[in-house]
Design a binder for these strands. Structure first.
Lengths: 212, 212
DNA sequence: AGAAAAGTTGACGCTGCGTCATTTTCGACG
DNA sequence: CGTCGAAAATGACGCAGCGTCAACTTTTCT
């Protein structure tokens, strides 16, 4: 009659400990990266933050780089469902773009709010500027979305890879600058990015001159 | 009757050696970064590529990070005059944007052509994605240019920081993708970026609806 | 020429890395 | 329960690269 386990904690004590250790290392790493910066951080710094021994670290990750990557993957994992929701709600190109930008800027603000609150000496942008495979998956997601939206709406004579790259570039750079302003204004950044891309696109699509 | 020195090599033997050593270290670093990647590179790897001793490295740079930064500064130093020329030739906003994008993409292709020619296992993008102070200077340059162009042309009710960020973001991301295509087509990237930003801007500026 | 200043050298002590033999913990089964 | 094998944790060890520094060499100045 004992219920076997909750959903996210596996059956045995063994497996539970394993998951907990992995998580502890990830959290410790996040903390240390934020405190002293990624470059300065050593594997020992990370493991010291947990109650594990040095050797144990290597049961979970091969290196500090791999921990970082895992953190990045974690971030993208958290972001993807948001994008999916946007995709499902979107009725046309504009609403998709707007939703996607809002989702990204909002996510970015959320991810960095701890770091910001604590003065964030370093590494405010965990998991953002990195080009992990997971990041490329998101890129392709967006590209596919854009392609679909364009098909649905109008022409498709656009270089969707470049268009996606431009959209993503705007998001990244604008996001960085948004984070530096106080108060952080997600709406403002969303409006700016959306309008720019929307207008830019109609201008690009409407290759045909005199479309008025 | 002995001519003192050429223009770029200072008077004494001492000073000349110093400049040469510094340059040797920078070139060695560039080579090693390109060959085995920035992370894997050690100060010893760099110095081994020169005929200097380990200790000598530290007479010139505090760390491998500092060498990298110096390389980045070198890159931006080489880029800035190109931007200046564009600024001087530009007659209106569009020609400036086009010139700036072309200058950047061309520069990027040039900077990476060695790495690309040699199979570029790593580190194709030296001095690009880094946010050095020098990079921020260029950002501000561009922003000032954009502001001036907008004043000259029309309104100025735009958030020029965000606009610049968007322009730069497009350049960066598009540039990355341009480098991955064969053959590398600077014209194509320039056309795409220019048209997108131009159209986006008229759409943004022309907040007034029905501008036809 | 001789002395002082500037620069180079490589050996040294130290820190952090990744491994691995040993020990501890867990869970399966009689 | 007790026993046993597998899984995981531990921390000491050898090693690699770091940054320093006292000794040495080269240049410059007078």
């Amino acid at each position: 009659m004992n219920s076997p386990a909750t959903l996210d904690s596996p059956s045995g004590k063994r497996a539970r400990a394993k998951a907990a250790n992995r998580q502890a290392i990830l959290e410790a790493a996040r903390a240390v990266f934020a405190r002293i910066g990624y470059d300065a951080t050593t594997v020992r710094d990370i493991i010291r933050e947990t109650d594990l021994a040095a050797g144990t670290f290597y049961n979970y990750f091969r290196s500090k780089e791999e921990v970082f990557e895992a953190l990045a993957v974690e971030s993208t994992r958290r972001f993807r469902p948001r994008l999916k929701e946007v995709r499902e709600r979107a009725t046309d190109f504009e609403s998709f773009i707007e939703g996607a930008y809002r989702a990204y800027f909002d996510f970015l603000a959320g991810e960095n709010e701890d770091a910001i609150r604590h003065g964030a000496p370093h590494m405010a942008l965990i998991g953002v500027r990195v080009d992990t495979p997971e990041m490329q998956v998101i890129f392709e997601d967006i590209r596919a979305d854009i392609e679909r939206m364009l098909d649905r709406d109008k022409l498709e004579s656009v270089d969707t890879e470049y268009l996606t790259a431009a959209a993503v570039g705007i998001a990244r750079e604008l996001g960085d600058h948004m984070l530096k302003r106080r108060p952080i204004d997600v709406d403002e950044a969303t409006r700016f990015a959306t309008q720019l891309l929307k207008a830019g696109l109609t201008g690009t699509l409407g290759d045909v001159p005199g479309s008025c």
